[in-house]
Design a protein around this nucleic acid. Structure first.
Length: 801
RNA sequence: GGGAGCGUGGCGGAAUUGGCAGACGCGCUGGACUUAGAAUCCAGUAUUGAAAGAUGUAUGAGUUCAAGUCUCUUCGCUCCCACCA
């Protein structure tokens, strides 16, 4: 009997060995094919590694270890996305500098990651808060600025009164702050934006070039939200003055049914004609009301339309030349389209609701619906009441009206996007300073490249001020500077970049993490190129994954990288839920501490179980008892050395089929069934009672990516070699099928028994075997369906006598 | 309101993509070993039935020799987007 497996001692031994010998460090070795496997680098929070990290990282870890055994030169890096609010808030609470908090957290993360035995390239570790890293984040920002893709604008923004920061739309969904859950308010502010909208089409097209799951592509497409339609100009008349209001519509065909115009409460026309509008005060009041309405309410009150007529202004429908009223209503948003719509109540439900409430005319222009009851928004039916469009189909009408309006210079075809430009500043300390200097003469001037990195000043009070100004503003010495162009006294931009900045390009930095001349060294990039496989969470699909694709497209356009798309393949893990099937959270008390699990069961068991628990891409509840199965499994693997014998009949275990199954399952992120297959094989071996050296060696290598410590130890003990130097086994296609196969026998679709026949037997052979086995009933066979090597189905009827 | 997906034993989940439903694991039951427990090992474990058998993948229909898988219906759940013009 072998000694009991002491995972604590064995795992520590191998972790130290790997780290001290730099086993998994890599260089740009041109003699080998490269593989770049990436995981989303963690935010080093004070709470340390959680099970979500383990699930997210372990998948790529399997692939990285497997690829090395397959002869690839593997880049599997790790880093820390360390700027951000939680650290800053914690630092303020405990009155420490965020730098110190961050360094402590990173140290803790590194230890914890090593205790799981991950085969990261530690020498390439990056930290987004390291000035040598954010120097290049700032450099990219300056490139964006110089290409006109970063601009400052006075704008209404999502503002979290609790965190005191401006939030991107992506961070304030449902009107709640992503970080703290408080209600987001709208606030007027100077905001830096990145023109991600300019890249909307490229980001859409790029999806055709990459291997992402469909659900991810769909989510990104929805997020970008391309719509095709037309911009049409309506004249607004105020006494003798004429003003032009552009509206955006996806249904220009319905223009003859446009019976009123609606502008958003913040629309500039209301400002411009404030003194001419007879009910200006009423409109002002309405705007205040709308402003205070939370996003959330706007959505939920969508049936109850509110609005105010703009008195003293009328619009002219360019198709009919008739005069129509103008309203302002909060169901029209300033931020989408042109902030104004032509309302066609007969064919748009929102306009219909509004028209009913305000008693406005509803003119049917497409046949097919019952506009007394509801709007008819289908795109089928003949055009009516539409002058030159009468009798046409909808698509014909769209084309005709656009060319008609274009000729008269009253409109044009236009595509629009739901995606807004990316609000790119925060009024907080712990972020990359925006490298811009405000000069009274030259305006916004980027910091000289030779001055980068523009380091954060070492200030003590990092609390944001009540007026929402950045803490950096309080550091007068830092703010005061000279204009790089004219030398005049100037001030620095005091806002910092949002958390998403560093993560938008970190994957490039891993290729040459300490290069002082380039963000990414061109030679290193030539070698590593695109990320071959990127694993991460679904929650980043519309943020990090889109932002980083955007930056990469931009870097492609300015010649820094040679591929438009950064990631060739993307996979996404499902959430690990608490035992109650709910999301893990401290308040629910259903959290599981990763280190406790490692202490009790060991890293290999944790790694195996987190993958075995269910379909990798689906959420799965953590069932504490279930982990014992993986513990037993690995203990039984350990004891295999007791039963080695080459003198045994191995026909009960098809090793080639096992290799194929495990190989393909790993590649297809079906880790649960790969492990199940290994368990099945182990059961077969124990039933038999013997294992051959060939079987053991193969089994250990197949299991090695999941459980590297125990397999390294057994392999070394048995073969006096390092398993890292082994090759991943290949299977022989010809040996996948054994020479006999079991065929289920059905009678009229019901299972009657099974027969064993030679592989590829023909129908008559199988029928004979069925007869010999006595499985034939006394009914007449009227039809036989035989699928070779699969199944046979006999259709019978009562015997005719 | 729009989009994507899901519904299988007591539980987590399998099912070669239309071909033996319930792999693998947990739990449970019985047994062995132990003074005893833990650990380990052996046997069993969808429901029903003594058994042969019958029934069974949320619901009701349909296609097919054959349906968890395809089509339609109803119910329920999850995620994403959302007064997006």
């Amino acid at each position: 009997m072998a000694i009991e497996y002491d995972f604590k001692q064995v795992e520590k031994k191998w972790q130290d060995y790997w780290y001290n010998n730099k086993t998994y460090e890599c260089t740009e070795d041109k003699t080998k094919p490269k593989f770049y496997g990436l995981i989303e680098f963690p935010y080093p929070s004070g709470t340390g590694l959680h099970l979500g990290h383990i699930k997210a990282f372990t998948s790529m870890e399997i692939i990285a270890r497997k690829k090395r055994l397959e002869g690839y030169n593997v880049l599997f890096p790790i880093g820390y996305d360390a700027f951000g609010l939680p650290t800053e808030n914690y630092a303020m609470k405990v009155k420490m500098h965020p730098r110190i908090v961050t360094d402590e957290n990173i140290k803790k993360f590194k230890e914890q990651l090593q205790s799981v035995g991950y085969s990261f390239c530690w020498d390439r570790t990056v930290d987004t808060t390291d000035p040598d890293f954010y120097k290049w984040t700032q450099w990219i920002f300056i490139q964006l600025f110089e290409k006109g893709l970063a601009y400052k604008s006075h704008s209404n923004v999502n503002y979290c009164p609790s965190c005191k920061v401006v939030l991107a739309n992506e961070e304030s969904q449902d009107g709640l702050c992503d970080r703290c859950g408080s209600e987001v308010i709208q606030k007027e502010k100077d905001v830096w934006f990145l023109k991600i909208r300019d890249y909307a089409n490229k980001l859409l097209d790029g999806l055709n070039e990459v291997n992402f799951p469909e659900r991810i592509k769909t989510e990104q497409q929805n997020w970008i939200g391309k719509s095709t339609g037309a911009e049409i100009t309506f004249k607004a008349i105020c006494g003798s003055e004429v003003y032009y209001i552009p509206v955006y519509t996806t249904r220009p065909d319905t223009i003859f049914g446009a019976t009123f115009l609606v502008v958003s409460p913040e629309h500039p026309i209301l400002e411009k004609f404030a003194d001419k509008i007879s009910n200006a005060q009423e409109i002002l009041d309405y705007r205040e009301l709308a402003k205070n309405k939370k996003e959330f309410d706007r959505i939920n009150l969508n049936k109850n339309k509110t609005g105010v007529e703009v008195k003293g202004l009328t619009a002219i429908n360019p198709a009919t030349d008739s005069s129509i009223p103008i309203f302002t209503a909060d169901y029209v948003m300033l931020g989408y389209g042109t902030g104004a719509i032509m309302a066609v109540p007969a064919h748009d439900q929102r306009d219909w609701d509004f028209a009913k409430k305000f008693n406005l005319p509803i003119i049917e222009v497409i046949e097919g619906g019952d506009i007394e009851k509801q709007a008819y928004s289908a795109k089928t039916g003949k055009m009516i009441n539409s002058s030159l469009l009468n009798g046409l189909t909808v698509s014909q009408a769209v084309e005709k009206i656009i060319s008609y309006l274009s000729e008269k210079k009253l409109g044009f075809a236009k595509t629009d996007f739901k995606m807004k430009d990316w609000a790119f500043n925060r009024q907080r300390y712990w972020g990359e300073p925006i490298p811009i200097i405000n000069c009274p003469h030259c305006g916004q001037v980027p910091v000289k490249l030779s001055e980068l990195p523009l380091k954060l000043p070492d200030i003590i009070n990092i609390t944001p001020s009540k007026n929402g100004e950045s803490p950096l503003a309080k550091c007068k010495k830092w703010v005061k500077t000279k204009c790089p162009i004219c030398g005049a006294n100037a001030t620095r931009e005091t806002d910092t970049m949002p958390q998403w900045a560093g993560s938008s390009w970190y994957f490039l930095r891993y290729m040459s993490p300490s290069d002082t001349e380039y963000a990414v060294n061109p030679d290193a990039y030539d070698y590593w190129g695109q990320v071959d496989w990127y694993n991460g969470g679904m929650e980043h699909v519309t943020r990090h994954l889109i932002y980083s694709r955007f930056w990469n497209h931009f870097l492609y356009d300015i010649g820094v990288v040679k591929f438009k798309e950064p990631y060739l393949r993307r996979t996404a893990q499902g959430l690990i839920l608490g035992a109650d099937g709910e999301k893990m959270s401290k308040s629910r008390g259903n959290t599981v501490n990763t280190l406790d699990v490692i202490n009790e069961y060991g890293a290999d068991v944790l790694r195996a179980f987190i993958l075995f628990i269910g379909d990798y891409e689906k959420p799965a509840p953590w069932q504490a008892d279930g982990i014992k199965g993986c513990l037993r499994f690995l203990n039984r693997v350990w004891n295999l050395t007791d039963i080695i014998s080459d003198d045994v009949d191995t026909s009960d275990l098809n090793l080639d089929a096992l290799i194929k199954k495990v190989d393909e399952d790993y590649e297809n992120v079906k880790f649960n069934t790969a492990i199940a297959a290994l368990m099945t094989a182990l059961n077969t071996i124990y039933t038999r009672g013997r294992i051959t050296n060939k079987e053991l060696e193969t089994f250990l290598i197949l299991l090695y990516p999941v459980a590297p410590h125990i397999t390294s130890e057994i392999y070394l003990n048995c073969y006096n070699k390092m398993i890292d130097q082994a090759s991943f086994p290949k299977y022989d296609e010809a040996k996948l099928l054994s020479n006999v196969v079991e065929i289920p026998v059905q009678e009229s679709g019901k299972l009657r028994g099974k027969v064993i026949v030679a592989v590829d037997s023909d129908e008559s052979t199988v029928l004979k075997a069925i007869k010999d086995a006595g499985l034939l009933s006394d009914r007449d066979i009227i039809k036989t369906i035989y699928v070779k090597n699969r199944i046979i189905n006999l259709i019978t009827k009562p015997k005719t006598t």
